[in-house]
């Protein structure tokens, strides 16, 4: 089978990358590699042939015009697409630290414990308090003691730069916070399960500029410890937070493809592809 053959080839000899990415288990931190990933919604293909390396302890941005498959792609990185609407099918491989998360023996539930996700709109659980929102994921895997709960709540809210703002209302409903605080609460909630990788799909698109700035600052701090993939339609945001940027584009056939990936500064200053150049210059999208 040609598909399998090319996949094996890609495994052995990864795509010719335009830039040198140091990666592999020898480096501390968790890395991901995407090999020839294609996605279909029913009969319609949405993403084709994406190859990408996600560097450990760095932020990788995915940019591109609306509808080019950014959300579709990022949801494949933790198999979140499998729970959504629309019959979809994936081919290719997604590796976490070298292990294929689509291997038949892999449990998608466990994949999501290792690869967390923050969504476009803040989605705290309104029936839970701020504190309970933080430990919701922890409670799925263990039965933490009160002191473990308190410790996790404080540590994760602190990591999410939210502790000072909410330490006096930990028992208020998660929905009682402002939009920006809710989004940081969702980040704290994702951090509480100690994920290897954190995926964010346009985490600031529902927020005002001040809340956006806080989240961006947070991402810059989190990438010291975490591997982050962030989808954004905001090119300034990509430049501010990301070490690497990938540009996606859907051609006339409405199938999204990875046009170019490079260190962020290079991609914006010296794009190799003319479509990238046109996009980052604001000529479309």
């Amino acid at each position: 089978m040609t598909a399998t053959h090319s996949q094996i080839e890609a495994l052995v000899r990864p795509e010719p990358v335009r830039h040198h990415v140091p990666h592999g288990p020898e480096l501390p931190g968790h890395w991901m590699q995407v090999i020839n990933l294609s996605v279909w919604y029913g009969a319609r293909q949405a993403v084709e042939g994406v190859n990408m390396t996600v560097r450990p302890k760095a932020a990788t941005a995915i940019i591109g015009p609306s509808g080019c498959g950014k959300s579709t792609f990022i949801r494949c990185l933790n198999r979140m697409h499998e729970v959504g609407a629309g019959v979809n099918r994936v081919s290719g491989q997604v590796l976490l630290d070298g292990h294929d998360i689509y291997a038949p023996s892999v449990d998608p539930v466990k994949v999501r414990r290792h690869i967390g996700m923050v969504f476009q709109r803040p989605n705290p659980f309104p029936s839970m308090s701020v504190a309970e929102n933080v430990v919701a994921g922890l409670r799925l895997v263990s039965n933490p003691t009160k002191s473990q709960v308190d410790e996790t709540v404080e540590r994760c809210l602190d990591q999410a730069a939210l502790w000072d703002e909410v330490k006096d209302k930990l028992s208020a409903s998660g929905a009682s916070l402002s939009g920006g605080q809710q989004q940081r609460l969702c980040i704290a909630r994702a951090l509480a399960v100690s994920p290897d990788v954190l995926l964010m799909d346009e985490p600031c698109s529902a927020l005002d500029p001040i809340a956006t700035a806080k989240i961006e600052q947070l991402i810059i701090e989190l990438k010291r410890d975490y591997t982050i993939v962030i989808v954004t339609h905001n090119m300034q945001q990509a430049q501010r937070v990301a070490d690497e940027t990938a540009f996606f584009l859907a051609a006339e056939d409405r199938i999204g493809r990875l046009v170019e990936m490079a260190p962020t500064g290079q991609l914006f200053a010296h794009p190799a592809d003319e479509r990238t150049a046109a996009y980052v210059a604001g000529r479309f999208g």
Binding site: N78, V83, G84, R112, R121, F125, S127, G137, L140
Partner: peptide, 27 residues
């Protein structure tokens, strides 16, 4: 119940039933 509620729980590594009992039913 918003899809986002269910997905929020699933993204934390919940099984389908855990997402229903932990997020959908309380909501």
């Amino acid at each position: 119940v918003p899809t986002m509620q269910r997905e929020g729980m699933l993204a934390l590594g919940a099984t389908k039933w855990e997402a229903i009992s932990g997020a959908v039913l309380p909501y």
